[in-house]
């Protein structure tokens, strides 16, 4: 499973969106689709667990979780950084 597909299924499980995640493009705005602040926190924790990464504090913001694509980019970057460290 690609990172994008994995994130898509985590969003489906933890995002508590009022719409079917399958209908969303990778770059669709998740907040506009109904992602609440609290659901985005649960999403953040589930992504950390799945990818075995830790978001640094400066990435704990709305931009990071704004779309499936945005999350995938940060996850890829952190996976590379945190494996190299």
């Amino acid at each position: 499973m690609s990172a994008v597909e994995a994130i898509r299924s985590i969003v489906a499980k933890h995002g508590k969106l009022p719409v079917d995640v399958a209908t969303l493009q990778d770059d669709a705005d998740l907040y506009a689709a109904g992602l609440s602040s609290f659901a985005s926190v649960q999403l953040m924790l589930a992504i950390e667990e799945h990818f075995d990464i830790e978001f640094p504090e400066d990435r704990l913001n709305r931009k990071t979780f704004s779309s499936i694509k945005a999350i995938a980019e940060v996850v890829t970057e952190l996976s590379e950084d945190q494996q190299a460290a």
Partner: peptide, 14 residues
């Protein structure tokens, strides 16, 4: 906690 850091950042951004 850390989850709270995210809530706080989001609150400021909005």
């Amino acid at each position: 906690g850390r989850a709270g850091k995210m809530m706080g950042n989001s609150q400021r951004e909005q």
